[in-house]
Amino acid sequence: MLANRVIFVCTVVVAMVYLYGTTQIPSLDIGDPLGPKAFPMLLGIGLLIAAGMLALEMWRDKAKNSPEADQPPAFEPRVIMVLGGVVVWTGAYYLMFIPLGYVCATAIYLFGLMAFFHPRKWVPNVATAVLFPLVTFFLFAKLEVSLPKGIFSF
């Protein structure tokens, strides 16, 4: 129920922001009776209607005293912390993707994740973290997909 309330509020906020953004689109209606604003405007209104439908569903669930209505959101603090860490670590990996190069950045990234999620298995972790980026780098080079060389660009 709490999750649904959050979804409801987020949906209304997104719809309002989107509708405001729609009003900012410059309009040139020559040859097009609707212009670039009309379709997005309909979508914004549609999203508000969907939020209204969600509110009705919440009201119906509450009226029925449905067991689903009392379920708390399934977010555990430890899970949020770990996944938050993964997102930050992945962001750092993406930032280093070009400066360090695909092979080096990926090896460090993989090793970091494996050390956490597959702990104390150093040999397979190091072997995978080193071999995987090397093999994929050459495989994708063969497939005409060029990945950044970074510190190995010589």
Binding site: L113, M114, T128, F132
Partner: peptide, 8 residues
Amino acid sequence: PGGILMPL
């Protein structure tokens, strides 16, 4: 192991 697969 998922700990190897998911990072890959």
